[in-house]
Amino acid sequence: MENLSDFFAMGGYGSYIWPAYLLAALILTVLLILSLRDLRRNESTLQTLRAERRGDAIDETDT
């Protein structure tokens, strides 16, 4: 237990080291999540548009 609190104190620099690591992790994670969300949204929109177009094409050949 004492070892653990020593570890988090980081020789008195814990209040600088942990914010540095947390901030880096937070920024990279948020960017990753936003990028994946964008990708999923764009790919599903593209699929719907393509399906619609295919549907139109079939309608035209039918008539």
Partner: peptide
Amino acid sequence: VRLRSEIAAAKIRNI
């Protein structure tokens, strides 16, 4: 990942 997203967005714009 972001490039795939950009390419999909460009195709959407084209359609």
